[in-house]
């Protein structure tokens, strides 16, 4: 099982270290008794957990455990059979993608979902679509309020570009970029939305060690500097244990553990189900 390998992720410091200046608040997002079925297959079976404001929350588990399905429930791509989602003080039977996006939930995808025909800049600008309100008439003329708005949002996107160190590929159509950079652009598009909650579906899959270190650093910086809550699916156990404050472990759609990285590491269910016999 290749994804159970423990890779040392280099210079990444655990956020729970002594210099931690973050404040972790009350739960901002919670799922309760979520059940998702596809035909006869139960992808998620009665899973509940919460996410506190400002924390990095990891969801781990073997392939097919229902991690991505969980993320799709959180941003409204999947409608659960039963259960509820608590978000921003309200309770929903299911989320709506538009509602999620307009209320500060941004996400990236396991298989990169970028607008391949557009440049990096345009991809990031789509993240600002919800922030742009000027009316159609001005937009067509590209004049007056529309121009001012475009410039403001452009400035914001430029800050994201600086932050992610992708200045040189600003004008490149993303379809031509190497895999690691595409992942970074996708993160950039999510960041351009100014999210309160960031859902990352395997942000480091298929990356080399150096790219992983970069990506880890970006995730930690976003979390620390902007107080963004991060929900993270990742197979690289080294990264997960280093980055996250708390970890949910899913196996065959069932939650088998939930706690700090240390607690999860010591949990016998997790060792049996996930790390398997190789961990002795």
């Amino acid at each position: 099982m290749a994804e159970a390998q423990v890779i040392d992720s280099g210079g990444v410091n655990p956020p729970s270290g002594s210099v931690d200046t973050r404040t972790i608040g009350d739960p901002v997002l919670a799922v309760e008794n979520i059940i998702v079925k596809f035909g006869g297959v139960t992808a998620i079976n009665d899973v509940s957990f919460d996410v506190r404001k400002g924390e990095i929350r990891a969801i781990i588990g073997p392939n097919g455990a229902g991690k991505s399905s969980m993320l799709n429930v959180l941003n409204g791509f999947y409608k659960p059979r039963s259960g509820q989602i608590k978000f921003a003080g309200k309770t929903f039977p299911s989320m709506d993608p538009y509602y999620a996006a307009s209320h500060g939930i941004a996400r990236t995808f396991q298989n990169i979902a970028l607008f391949r025909g557009m440049s990096t800049l345009d991809n990031l600008m789509t993240g600002r679509l919800l922030k742009m309100k000027s009316n159609f008439f001005w937009q067509c003329l590209y004049f007056g309020p529309a121009q001012k708005e475009e410039l403001e949002n452009r400035a914001h996107v430029e800050r994201v570009i600086d932050f992610l160190e992708i200045q040189p590929i600003r004008r490149t159509p993303v379809g031509r970029l190497p895999y690691g950079l595409q992942k970074r652009v996708e993160l950039g598009r999510a960041l351009a939305m100014d999210p309160d909650i960031l859902l990352l579906d395997e942000p480091m899959a298929g990356m080399n060690v150096e790219e992983k270190e970069d990506m880890s650093r970006f995730i930690m910086d976003v979390n620390e500097e902007f107080g963004t809550t991060v929900i993270l699916i990742e197979h690289d156990m080294g990264v997960v244990m280093d980055l996250s404050d708390r970890v949910v472990v899913l196996d065959y759609g069932v939650k088998i553990a939930d706690g700090t990285p240390d607690e999860v590491r010591a949990n016998q269910n997790v060792i049996d189900a996930y790390l398997g016999v190789s961990h002795d």
Binding site: F115, T126, L129, L130, F136, Q139
Partner: peptide, 24 residues
Amino acid sequence: KTRIGRALRAVADDHQAALSVGIS
């Protein structure tokens, strides 16, 4: 040039990604 035009191109490229940035 327009916001809607950008959204149109986004939808043409990838439905899921378009949904995730809040395009209806």
